[in-house]
Every structure is written in structure tokens, then in C-alpha cells.
Amino acid sequence: MGLTNYAELAAIILFGIGFTILLIDRNLIKKNIGFAMTDSGMYLYLAAKGYISGRKAPIVVNGVTEMSAYINPIPAGLVLTGIVVSVATSAVMLALTVRLYRKYHTLNIDEIADKARKERE
């Protein structure tokens, strides 16, 4: 059983969509989801790099410790770290969103910037 390169393809498209939402969408919550998607895309890409067709997950079974039996454990470990980091970041962004909404009653970042500028003047 082998998987062809679909995972990387999907990962890149996911990254592209997420990055575009992060850049273009003016809604803060959508921006946040876009950021999370960007990260998922990258992690999918990284995890696909560790895959070797026909091999098993890196959990030692029956004491077999040969390289040829398992896939590469490093990308999985890195992704594990990354997932947690991205949840932390998105929690902070959401908290900022709540504070901003409480103050300005809108989620649109342009309107918020407008109102903040008026406040300054």
C-alpha cells in the first residue's frame, strides 16, 4: 500500500488558502481561522515528509528496532510541538478579539483602526 503525493499537494493548497484569508479577510475571527489553517497546512506538509510508504508508526513492536520497519519519527515530534504552539497563539488572538469587540463593537479590522484613529484625534 502506498500513498502518492496527494498529502503534500493538499497541504500546500491549504496553506495558500489560509494565508490568503489571513492577509485579505478583514474579519478578525476569520483571520484567526486562516492563521490556524496556515499552520495546519504546514504541519500536514511536514508530517508528509516523514512518511515512508509501506512502513509503520514509530512505536516499537515485538522489540524490532530496525530503521526499515518504521517511518521517520522526527517530523511527527516537530508537528506535535507546533500544534500546541499554534493553539496558544490563536488563543491570544481570540482574547485580543474579544477585548477589541468589547471596546469597538465590530470585528472588522479596518473599522476598528478607523475608530481608534478618531479616538486619538
Partner: peptide, 14 residues
């Protein structure tokens, strides 16, 4: 390329 065992990622570290 994807899923090959001779990729540079699968070096002496794993």
C-alpha cells in the same frame, strides 16, 4: 519526492 526511503530527511538521526 514523497514517501521514498532514500530522502535526505531519513538520515542517521532518525
Amino acid at each position: 519526492s514523497f514517501g521514498r526511503e532514500d530522502n535526505p530527511v531519513h538520515n542517521e538521526v532518525p
